[in-house]
Amino acid sequence: MSSEEIFEPKIVAFVCNWCTYAGADLTGTSRLKYATNVKIVRFPCTGRIDFLLLLKSFAQGADGIIVSGCHPNDCHYTSGNFHARRRWIAFRSILDMMGVDVRRVQYSWVSAAEGSKWADLVNNTVADIRALGPYTDYQKVADYLEKEVQDGEA
């Protein structure tokens, strides 16, 4: 990569249907400009986002991840985001123990009215991940089977 080229990180966003997805929609309809690096995956609720999906994203080439849903007390299902928050606390601790780069997972609350917050969240995350560079550590081992077969241990 020449110094002129800027690294464009691949970001996957896991968002809830009721708040953040609607918020991101609002960003669009308000014609706010934001980075195009993000691919959005919509869930009914943050409580429904399986932590393994985050790891699968890294394995398939994501450099950064956004997870976002309704603010506390605003969950469409009352407490899905509270449960999710607990899970994230535990997940972060386990990831950190395993040496996974937790800086690459950005959690947020974005409501249906916060179109500009969504734009900021994406822009800031893209900037952060760009500074961190591609997540080659993870992608290298994710290409496992070939390596395992060709160079595996006897």
């Binding site: 393994l52 790891l55 699968k56 394995a59 535990a90 997940f91 395993m98 496992y144 089977l145 395992e148």
Partner: peptide, 22 residues
């Protein structure tokens, strides 16, 4: 979770088990 042993599949397994133990 991929059932064959490979570094990432193994790590996914262990992270999963740890999450189930929280």
């Amino acid at each position: 979770i991929n059932p064959w042993p490979a570094p990432v599949a193994n790590m996914e397994w262990h992270i999963n088990r740890a999450m189930h133990m929280v």
